[in-house]
Simulated assay, not measured.
Amino acid sequence: MKTVHTIKELRSIVAQQRKKGQRIVFVPTMGNLHEGHISLVTEGLTHGDFVITSIFVNPMQFGANEDLDSYPRTLEQDQQKLSQAGNHLVFAPSAKEIYPQGMDNQSKVIVPDITEFHCGASRPGHFTGVSTVVMMLFNMVQPDVAIFGQKDFQQLAVIRKMVKDLFMPIQIIGLPTARDPDGLAKSSRNGYLSEEERAIAPRLSDIINLTGQKIQAGARDFTALSREAESLLLDNQFKPDYFNIVDSETLKPAAQTTESITILAAAYLGDTRLIDNITI
């Protein structure tokens, strides 16, 4: 496995693989990799011949008071995990390489409507940062397939819409959320949790699952169900950001006739913001 840090090096290697007729698979990450990330690489090996993983903590998707500076950067450990998983190339650029003119002078990709609620409402500008950097990375790598986790359900929906709207010839694959044995969704930010908070954290998925069970049993007052869930979160030391029951396709509020329902939730536990979801 090789690691490159410049777009020129990346494109040279991609061109070599293309000449061999190889199918390119891309896994974009921000590093500090856990088993969920590695499962994306493992899946990628079944969809193509050459797997490229990017590691880039994208400053454009962080808000002014968010954790850009403290976000864990563990390139050496990430390289070891990726090599063991069979990944072929790591692209680990600097912010200067990605934004040579600075972010203020960077053209941006805005995906309308679907970015305006849930995490989009809580983190203004976040999804513009995501869609912009993913578009840039897609243009650099030019993959046949790109693989993402479903823990960031809204992010995946945003990327699917961007690819569809802009007629990009890339197959987008979403994989189920990787979880610890106690049900907590794996996340790089879980490392921020204290020992006490880590013991409480799985209750977020418990409350989401409980709400899902009520819906499956026939409950259809989604507003009341969301309020009940937020109350349970407060009782369990969380500070709810949102708890929304939505149409899985549109991410708009679910209706009585909605066939596929997704529960999206975000909540703070101490200073750590956790997100999770299930689809019913």
Score class of each variant (00 low, 15 high):
2 K>R: 12
3 T>K: 09
9 E>T: 13
10 L>M: 05
10 L>I: 14
17 Q>C: 00
20 K>A: 11
26 F>Y: 11
28 P>T: 14
28 P>E: 13
35 E>D: 14
35 E>M: 08
36 G>L: 06
37 H>Y: 03
43 E>A: 11
44 G>R: 00
44 G>D: 01
46 T>D: 11
55 I>V: 15
57 V>A: 03
65 N>D: 15
67 D>I: 07
69 D>G: 13
75 L>K: 00
75 L>I: 15
84 Q>C: 12
87 N>R: 04
90 V>C: 14
95 A>Y: 01
95 A>T: 03
98 I>G: 07
102 G>N: 09
103 M>W: 05
103 M>H: 02
106 Q>H: 08
107 S>K: 12
111 V>I: 12
112 P>A: 02
117 F>G: 03
118 H>A: 11
118 H>S: 09
118 H>W: 11
119 C>I: 05
124 P>G: 05
126 H>P: 09
135 M>E: 12
135 M>Y: 12
137 L>F: 13
141 V>M: 01
142 Q>Y: 10
143 P>I: 00
148 F>H: 02
158 V>C: 02
162 M>Y: 02
162 M>A: 11
166 L>M: 14
166 L>H: 13
168 M>L: 15
170 I>E: 04
172 I>G: 00
174 G>T: 06
174 G>V: 06
174 G>N: 06
176 P>N: 04
177 T>W: 00
177 T>F: 00
177 T>A: 00
177 T>H: 02
181 P>D: 01
182 D>G: 04
182 D>P: 07
182 D>C: 06
186 K>L: 15
188 S>H: 06
189 R>I: 09
190 N>W: 09
191 G>F: 09
191 G>R: 05
192 Y>G: 04
195 E>Q: 13
197 E>H: 08
198 R>F: 13
198 R>M: 14
206 D>M: 14
208 I>Y: 15
211 T>P: 15
224 A>H: 14
225 L>F: 06
226 S>C: 08
227 R>V: 15
232 L>F: 01
233 L>G: 07
233 L>M: 11
238 F>C: 02
238 F>A: 02
244 N>R: 09
244 N>I: 05
245 I>P: 01
245 I>K: 00
250 T>H: 02
253 P>R: 03
254 A>P: 15
257 T>W: 04
262 T>V: 14
263 I>W: 08
266 A>T: 07
267 A>D: 12
268 Y>A: 13
269 L>P: 05
269 L>G: 10
272 T>G: 03
276 D>W: 07
276 D>S: 11
279 T>L: 03
